[in-house]
């Protein structure tokens, strides 16, 4: 516990605590307003965004000067006050002079990259460090072109876009915020999970034998048969994940409107995103190392 408190307040970690407050506040603000709006719409009332009284000129639009500018001014004053107080009461971290011969254990990336560093436990470096972040960025940029639901533009709502919000929140809360939290607070020496009540013992060894999927049924994962089975499971996961919902939902108006190409991209990104927590779950429950060990003479290697 002492170690947990130490970890909570050391280095840049107080930032993560503040980040947590921001996240909770943001989620509360958006979900409370979304639920309020949904209730109001069900009753046929005006939503929050439309229920403000008209401005002093009898117009729904009001002058930026002074009504917006004065708010910005106040916000800046409050923000800068908070920041300067923070800067006065706590010092920015500064450790010893950089020493390339002394590797700290654990070595951690800056906190906002710890979710990605966590991925290294489950995948090859080129998948965890290069492919996954790139798919994330491209996937994020593609959101406006994939979400063709015209409703819910410019106001808080859950009922009108449950899938969009559910998916985004899953990615943000489970795959981004909680993996960062795990990386910051629970990953100790040797990148081993330490619970808050455990001492960070650098000599602790966890006897963990992770085995590949096909080894559960006694087939060498590096053999041809093991390769084929692993490949079938991996590719099958995506093929089934993309096609089965399509067959079931192809008459659904949303799927019809999406069209086959947009649907495939949405489904591929969604199934791929879901693959991460599935792999994490399997690693911790049945000590799964890789589903598919695919490689050819060290030129191409695809261990997933």
């Amino acid at each position: 516990m002492e170690n947990f408190l130490h970890n909570l307040l050391s280095k840049d970690n107080e930032v993560i605590v503040i980040f947590g407050f921001f996240v909770v506040a943001a989620l509360a603000a958006s979900f409370i307003q979304a639920i309020t709006n949904d209730k109001r719409m069900a009753r046929g009332e005006k939503i929050i965004e439309l229920s403000y009284p008209d401005g002093p000129d009898g117009d729904y639009k009001i002058f930026s000067w002074p009504y917006l500018v004065r708010k910005e001014f106040l916000a800046v004053i409050m923000f800068i006050t908070g920041l300067l107080v923070w800067g006065l009461i706590t010092d920015a971290p500064l450790e010893e002079f950089a020493n390339p011969n002394l590797t700290p254990n654990p070595s951690k990336a800056p906190w906002y990259f710890l979710g990605l560093q966590e991925m290294l436990v489950y995948f090859d470096p080129w998948i965890a460090g290069v492919v996954i972040p790139k798919v994330m960025v491209v996937g994020l940029m593609a959101i406006p072109y994939l979400d063709i639901n015209p409703k819910g533009s410019g106001y808080y709502t859950l009922k009108e876009r449950p899938f969009a919000i559910g998916t985004f929140m899953f990615g943000f809360i489970i795959l981004w915020v909680s993996l960062i939290t795990v990386g910051v607070f629970l990953r100790g020496p040797g990148w081993i999970i330490f619970m808050p009540w455990q001492e960070w013992d650098p000599h602790r060894v966890v006897a963990e034998t992770n085995i590949d999927l096909t080894q559960y049924i006694g087939i060498d994962s590096k053999s041809l048969l093991g390769n084929i089975i692993g490949g079938l499971v991996f590719i099958g996961y995506f093929v089934v994940g993309v096609t089965v919902p399509y067959i079931l939902l192809r008459k659904h108006p949303t799927v019809v409107k999406l069209g086959i190409i947009r649907y495939s991209i949405v489904a591929f990104l969604f199934v791929g995103m879901m693959g991460l927590p599935i792999k994490i779950f399997l690693k911790f429950t049945i000590h799964l190392k890789y589903i598919w060990v695919c490689g050819w003479k060290g030129i191409i290697f695809f261990n997933i």
């Binding site: 965004e49 008209d54 009001i62 009504y67």
Partner: peptide, 13 residues
Amino acid sequence: HPIKIKRHAIAVR
């Protein structure tokens, strides 16, 4: 800034 802005857009919430 725009000259005029919609009322809800300046709400902090």
